[in-house]
Design a protein around this nucleic acid. Structure first.
Lengths: 263, 263
DNA sequence: CGGTCACTTGATCGTCTTCAATACCAGTGG
DNA sequence: CCACTGGTATTGAAGACGATCAAGTGACCG
């Protein structure tokens, strides 16, 4: 299966670093549950599991939901807390992460518009979540959501489908974390972001990075410095162009795919 | 969130190594579909999703299933192949893995008795699978299985539950691969194996390792040598005892949990 | 016994981390 | 307008962990 290859690939791992977050402040709730039909006009619906529900039954869903706005850095799921709610992100981006007792952090994913959260839980949340920038979401009490699942089988099916997709990405991330070099990780990450962006209608070569270098590092199992050096090298090699720290332009996608390990 | 800590933690990653496998030989099929009620007497049923189906309707399940025996090293899922079947392992252990073009391998998990495979797929398998030792399983054509899902909603619910659990383990594995040292990885692995074993009725301190050092290495994102040295060090530190290469006895579980990173 | 295979152990090397300094950018107030 | 400040990103030098290369052990099997 795996044959010998001249490739080299080393990765070391960082100690925990300071990372000031606004974490847990009270969340601003919008009491719009009583309004007409918020779910019907939701921007996120078309890309979310909610789409599985027919128009005329959306009010049933809306009745269970409460929308909220979060400030940058604000946390809304704490690992280990009782899992009381499900969440659906309607705008902005969140980071999902796990922590070690000494503070080392692994970001397991970034969740954008339409992303359904709280799935991967038993009684307590298995990961934490924080808004990266300004963010809005809607929130369902767990019990009512489970009732909705009984009522809407299509919703349950969509959730299973979602879970399968996330499982596939998780496996790809394991391959990345376990076997790819820093350069490959960064290239893979940029390509994934480009794909995610173009799915949201952005230009295929233009990548917007709402997260910081620290977030990227914690997502790729690297340090800030290695991420930064990686960007610089990809730029010097002519694969990308950096327009500020949060915007990347792909100049040579074939070479970038190659640098990603050919997957 | 993540504060500075004096911890050090480096990991390097291996080049692809030779790893002779018997891979794809024809699978021995048992034509027992016509027999009485094989699912009712299945050893794996109690720990599998099949358990969601009532006794009197088991024949409907059995009618779709075909059992098979695999030789050690034999592959039965090839990454990228059209996803035609679901699998349920009835005895033995399989390794699930992803490969990079140059042969580097990441094992994403080990699947034992009762484990349901083929979930995390769209049209093609997202990972490969091989028997580690002698193995038996039953196999469902994809289309018939989907029909069964329609018929047995409880089965679908169990699958969603399974998927959620796997998502949680996947996140834990990402934390391990991205942020833990070699020693922590190995300790975490042993503890997980111990838990899995005791769930199957083994003594809590006794661990059986059906897989090779190469498998463990590819699972933990390390090399064979590092895994071996890790075992030796844990032994010399008095945390474990090695009874041959495939049997481990935990001598100090608290210390082992500590060495695992305290999670 | 010679052969293979899996595992262990030793010495050296390289990638990424660590530590530290510098650059950058937005916001603030003199 | 410019100095000041805090947070973020970049760059440089040194060090460390795990990879690599290589040799040695032990078990099993012909």
């Amino acid at each position: 299966m795996a044959q010998t290859s001249p490739m080299r690939a080393d990765v070391a791992m960082p100690t925990a670093r300071a990372s000031a977050t606004t974490s847990f402040r009270p969340i601003v709730i919008h009491p719009d549950g009583a309004l007409g039909d918020p779910c019907a006009h939701c921007d996120a619906r078309s890309v979310s599991v909610c789409n599985a529900i027919e128009d005329d039954r959306l009010p049933r869903l809306a009745a269970a939901a409460v929308t909220a706005t979060l400030a940058p850095g604000q946390g809304f799921i704490a690992e280990g807390d009782p899992a009381t709610h499900f969440f659906n992100i309607t705008s902005g981006t969140a980071r999902l992460f796990k922590l070690l007792p000494d503070g080392r952090r692994q970001i397991t994913g970034f969740a954008g518009r339409g992303h359904f959260l709280g799935l991967a839980v038993s009684d307590t949340y298995a990961f934490g979540a924080e808004a990266i920038g300004p963010m809005t979401m809607c929130r369902f009490p767990r019990s009512r959501m489970l009732g909705l699942l009984d009522e809407f089988r299509a919703l349950e099916q969509r959730l299973l489908e979602t879970a399968r997709n996330e499982l596939v990405s998780a496996q790809e991330q394991m391959l990345l974390l376990g076997r790819k070099t820093a350069r490959e990780r960064l290239s893979s990450f940029l390509l994934a972001q480009a794909r995610a962006g173009s799915a949201c209608g952005h230009a295929a070569h233009q990548i917007d990075l709402p997260m910081t270098r620290a977030d990227i590092a914690d997502y790729l199992g690297l340090t800030i410095e290695t991420v930064s050096r990686g960007f610089t090298r990809l730029r010097n090699d002519g694969l990308i162009r950096l327009d500020g720290a949060n915007s990347v332009h792909i100049r040579n996608i074939a070479a970038l795919e190659d640098a990603a390990g050919g997957v």
